[in-house]
Simulated scan of single mutants.
Amino acid sequence: MDYYYGLIIFICFWNPGFGNLPGPINVTMESINFRNILRWNRPTDLEGDVTYTVQYKMDVRSSKTDYKTICVTQELQCIASVISYNSYVRVNAKLQLNISDWVTIYFDPYSHTIIEAPEVKVSSRSGYLDVSINGPFVGSNDVSVKEKYGELIYRVAYWKESDPANELVVSTTQNTEILHDLDTWTMYCVKVQAYVSYNDKAGEFSPVICKKTTNDDRTPSWKIALLFLGSMVLAVVFILIVIVLIIKAYKMTRYIFFPSYSFPQHLKEYLNKPFYNTSYLSPQPTEECGESCEQLTFVSEETEEKDT
């Protein structure tokens, strides 16, 4: 009989899954932008296929609140993004028919979550720097962290690249901020973080972006004068070309339609009469009449003037 009792005691101490099972250790909640992951370590010297159960219940005064199961897994972590309010979170281990005690932690997502850096774009425009801010977001569903907190302030820090110790900070609740009163043609660096005022929670800073400012978009007076003189010269040249073309067209039209010479009056009268009139037709030559030819000379008014 003593032999059997000794065998049972030996089995109890040799098999860690028999009797009271040790629970998970180093239970912590990691939360980034309300993406919550509960992590833990395997109990020391525990072998076999251990199954872990994760549950939570909200921290409310109602006594009827029960724990809700989130995960039943053999991994050492559980995605617990369903928790969006102050809650008690617990996990236990199960090996065959043995179950460990619950290991419970308290989790406040609004205080514990890490606010990542927002997305920032910087562009230089007319002596200013335009800062565009977007996010941060909760997961991949494009829900902004601002919707979770109800408010979100962006702290925009900027400084000259040559003087990093002289850092200036402006705060805004908008997604855009214009940095002015900057030196022209100077390299400035910018970084942005999200901040929640009611619980004094600051997020991570965005990567530093450096941009060079341009001029203030004011045209110097000497450029204005140069542009004015240039436009005047072009206008004068254009007008002269138009005048020359008009003169040439006028001379060509006059030469074609109003020539400098004129026909004698008797030829004009002759040409104005119909050519088919029989009285002007020359009679047919007869055998009795011999052919006679005379030379006809046209004299213009210019020729007469030269002769005189």
Results as ranks from 00 to 15, higher is better:
38 L>D: 03
40 W>K: 05
32 I>Q: 10
39 R>D: 04
38 L>F: 05
25 I>H: 07
14 W>E: 14
33 N>Q: 04
33 N>L: 06
22 P>I: 05
18 F>M: 13
7 L>N: 08
22 P>A: 08
41 N>A: 09
7 L>A: 10
30 E>K: 13
38 L>N: 05
16 P>D: 10
28 T>P: 00
33 N>W: 00
28 T>M: 13
11 I>S: 11
6 G>A: 11
22 P>Y: 07
30 E>P: 02
24 P>N: 13
8 I>F: 01
19 G>D: 02
8 I>K: 03
17 G>Q: 09
10 F>S: 02
41 N>L: 07
17 G>Y: 07
23 G>Y: 01
21 L>H: 02
22 P>E: 10
32 I>C: 06
39 R>C: 10
37 I>P: 04
9 I>P: 03
12 C>Y: 12
16 P>N: 08
35 R>N: 14
36 N>R: 08
32 I>V: 15
25 I>R: 14
27 V>F: 04
10 F>D: 00
13 F>E: 00
21 L>Y: 00
24 P>Y: 11
9 I>M: 05
11 I>M: 13
20 N>F: 10
39 R>G: 04
34 F>W: 02
20 N>V: 11
26 N>T: 04
36 N>G: 09
12 C>A: 12
7 L>F: 01
21 L>D: 02
36 N>L: 05
23 G>W: 01
26 N>D: 09
31 S>L: 07
37 I>M: 08
40 W>M: 07
28 T>C: 06
15 N>T: 12
12 C>I: 14
30 E>F: 15
34 F>A: 03
22 P>G: 06
42 R>W: 09
